[in-house]
Amino acid sequence: MTLTSASTNPAAPNVAIVQPSRLTLTLRYFRRNKGLAIGLGILLALALFTIIGLLVIDPKKAYPLSAALKQSPSLKYPFGTDFFGRDLLAAMVVGMWQTAFIGLLAGGIGTALGVVLGFLAAYFGGWVDGVIRTICQILTPIPVLLIQVVVAGSLDKRDVTIVTMAMIVAMLAWMGPTLVIRAQVLTLKERQFVAVAKLSGVSDMGIIFKEILPNLLPFIAAAFVGQVFGAVFASFYLAVLGLGPLREPLLGNIIWAAQSQGAFFNGWWWWPLEPAFAMILILGALALVNMGLDELANPRVRRTE
């Protein structure tokens, strides 16, 4: 604002050009990158719903036999209750929290594995690169979700908890980030500033952590969001198939339970519908953030419209 007034009003030459604050710049960037802003907004709203819910609601109500059975949404039970006597409002709050937990844990592990492996492959090259790349290529066409079905199916039902669920999901999800980080490191390590650092005697570790890693951060952030999306989706998929921790009110589990009890045939429409809407919000918001971050990380693929 100051800038425009200075240029249009030559009578006031002494107006200082003020550097806009960080906040203004961020807000301006959000105005250009609307997808990122909307996605973050929805995620924030969901986080608030979960946090306030966890503070206000008794989490025990999310488990069977804690409320009246099969009540449609009313003042007492805003989201209704299900066949097993769970208050669905409480179930949604706890389920949302568990979904977020699985997503962040599995996404974090998957990204960390991908970053380390991608780094090793690209930085050291040679046979290390060959082995890692070949494994990624062979594993990529195998539908990961189905392999996860095998893993989850082999476990004792009592052993399946929220944490094992996250581990199952993370175990087979590192191939994507590995290839992305590998490609980025390959281009970065040929840049001049890395050559300069090498010539001035910086050690391998110094180059990795001080020269290359900071340049990778946007890509790591984008890969992380992608991984969280994948993890949320994979855990949802397993739970819908009945391979989740059956007692927990994970969103996929609620749908699985509703489907096994023939919820629509019996007219309990709210039961499967609520987790479905929650899932749309979570996945939609994550997809928007993911696309927005891609744009932030890769200015070259910014929209040309």
Binding site: I255, P272, L273, A276
Partner: peptide, 18 residues
């Protein structure tokens, strides 16, 4: 785009079937 087919199925079941 990206709405998982299961969820699409539930929505369709609700609106068109139910």
């Amino acid at each position: 785009t990206g709405v998982p087919p299961v969820i699409m199925g539930i929505l369709l079941l609700f609106f068109i079937g139910f």
